[in-house]
Design a protein around this nucleic acid. Structure first.
Lengths: 144, 144
DNA sequence: CGGATTTGTATCAAGATAGGTTACAAAGGG
DNA sequence: CCCTTTGTAACCTATCTTGATACAAATCCG
C-alpha cells in the first residue's frame, strides 16, 4: 500500500471533470468511479485546487470543475501538483565524510536524480488531459 | 523513512568495491562509510549477488568484490537489481468498469508508465560504475 | 582439528506513509 | 431555515523500510 497512487487518481479525477465540461461533478460520483471513499477524492481535489487546476463549490448544486480547457492542462502539471518525492531516496543517514565515496556520493546521486527528473518531466509535458480523454474514448471504441 | 534508498546505497557499496579492485571488502567497513548497520549492507550485497554483480566469501579474509570491471557495470543494472516498483502506483482498488474512464484509465496509465520507465532506463544506461568513481575523484579534487 | 572471523539470513522492533473511515463545521441553494 | 455538499481534522490499519540482535554456516590460520 506504500507506493503513491495519487497521480493515477488525480488523472482519473481530472479526466472525469474534463469529460463533463462545465458541469460540476460531485466527489461522491467520482469516488464511485475511482472505487474509494469520497474524502480521498476531496483531499486530492484540495491539492489540485491549490495548484490552480480545479475549483469547487459547496452546497446543493456543488461539485468541482476544471479551471481550464483539457487541452491546456499538461500531465506534467498534475504530476508536479501531487508528487512528493524523487525516483529514489538518498541515504537515510549522512555517509562518512572522511571517506571519499561517502563524501561525494550524494552530490553525484543528486545530479543523477535531476537528470532523470528532467527526462520524466519531458515525457509528461508531451501529454495533456485532452489526450487522456481521447485515449479513453479510443480504448472504449476498440472494445466495440 | 518509507522511501526506498536501496539504489543509493547499492551504488555506494559498488563504488567502494570498484575503488579497491580485487581486494575483498568487508560489510563492516562498507557499513561505516554508509553509516548504517552491517546487516543492511549484507542484505543488499545478497541482492547484488543474485543479480551477478558481486561475489562474497565468508571467513577470516572474507568480504565482497565485483564480478566485472567497473566500466562494464551500468547503473541501469544496479537499478534493475534493487528497484521494486514503478514511478507511480496505479489505483489501489479496481476502478468502476461501468464508467468509461474507470474502465480505460489504468491501461492508459500503464502505457505512460512504460514510456517513463524507458526514459529512465535510457538515462541510467548512459553511466557505468567507472563513471561514478571518476566523479567521486573529480569531486574530491574540486575540494582541494 | 579448533578457534577466530565473516557472511547469510531469520526475526523483531520502530518509524513513516498511504489509504480508508467517521465526524462535523462551513458554505451555498431552494 | 433546511438540505446538500465540500473542507478538513482525527484516527485506525496495513504495509514498507531501516535498524538491530542472534546464530548457523563457511572459511582461514595456527
Amino acid at each position: 500500500m506504500a507506493a503513491n497512487s495519487q497521480f493515477a487518481i488525480a488523472v482519473h479525477i481530472l479526466a472525469m471533470l474534463a469529460k463533463s465540461c462545465d458541469e460540476r461533478i460531485k466527489s461522491d460520483y467520482i469516488a464511485k468511479s475511482v472505487n474509494t471513499n469520497p474524502v480521498v477524492i476531496r483531499r486530492l481535489l484540495s491539492t489540485l485546487y491549490e495548484n490552480g487546476l480545479v475549483v469547487s463549490q459547496t452546497g446543493m448544486c456543488g461539485g468541482s470543475c476544471l479551471t481550464r480547457k483539457a487541452s491546456d492542462i499538461k500531465l506534467l502539471e498534475v504530476y508536479r501538483a501531487v508528487s512528493t518525492g524523487e525516483i529514489f531516496s538518498l541515504h537515510p543517514n549522512t555517509p562518512d565524510q572522511n571517506c571519499s565515496v561517502g563524501k561525494n556520493i550524494q552530490t553525484i546521486l543528486e545530479k543523477l536524480q535531476a537528470e532523470i527528473d528532467e527526462a520524466i518531466e519531458e515525457k509528461l509535458s508531451r501529454y495533456t488531459l485532452q489526450d487522456v480523454i481521447e485515449m479513453v474514448e479510443s480504448e472504449s471504441a476498440e472494445i466495440v
